[in-house]
């Protein structure tokens, strides 16, 4: 059964969807070869001192429930295909945040034989958070900025779902 809505209804529905997305984005964390430094800082952001959940962000396990993919570390040969698969399993629209120097440029691991490169050589990235590792405040700032850019409206926001290289 298909329901055809009037234009105004459609608009209202889009607004509700955007409102819900901004107020409670769910995030999934994938470590594609990180040293653990960024990972423990991401975990620290959900614990009482920093408490990312007050922005409605929830870390959870399945890519199929996630809006934001938080990536750490350079991409290793072993993790490349897994990273792509996790990205493809996420429903649209999806956003990717690269956390840490390694995720942005390969960092200290440039030139290691097991490292393919950085995150945006494998999947498109929407926000970069630099640091080795970034402080929890920086991670929160990055996620909040990403949420702010979503408010600009559907035309301007660069949603995911681009073809994977």
């Amino acid at each position: 059964m298909t329901i055809t809505l009037g234009e105004k209804w459609n608009e209202a529905l889009e607004q509700v969807k955007l409102w819900a997305r901004i107020n409670s984005p769910w995030a999934i964390h994938f470590n594609s070869g990180s040293c653990n430094g960024c990972d423990i800082e991401i975990l620290a952001t959900v614990t009482p001192r920093y408490d990312l959940e007050r922005f409605g962000v929830k870390l959870q396990g399945s890519p199929r429930h996630a809006d934001i993919l938080i990536c750490t570390g350079p991409v290793t040969l072993q993790a490349r295909d897994r990273l792509k698969r996790v990205y493809e399993q996420m429903p649209d629209p999806k956003f990717v945040v690269a956390v840490g120097s390694c995720a942005i440029s390969g960092g200290a691991f440039q030139g290691c034989y097991g490292v393919v490169g950085h995150i945006d050589q494998v999947i498109p990235v929407d926000a970069y958070i630099p640091g080795c590792p970034p402080r929890p405040e920086a991670i929160i700032d990055g996620v909040v900025k990403l949420l702010g850019s979503l408010k600009k409206g559907p035309e301007e926001q660069r949603s995911g779902g681009e073809e994977v290289k």
Binding site: S34, G73, L77, F109, V115
Partner: peptide, 14 residues
């Protein structure tokens, strides 16, 4: 194991 293998031991030689 081995998903996080970056090859650091070899990289130290460079």
């Amino acid at each position: 194991l081995g998903y996080v293998h970056r090859g650091i031991e070899k990289a130290t030689e460079d």
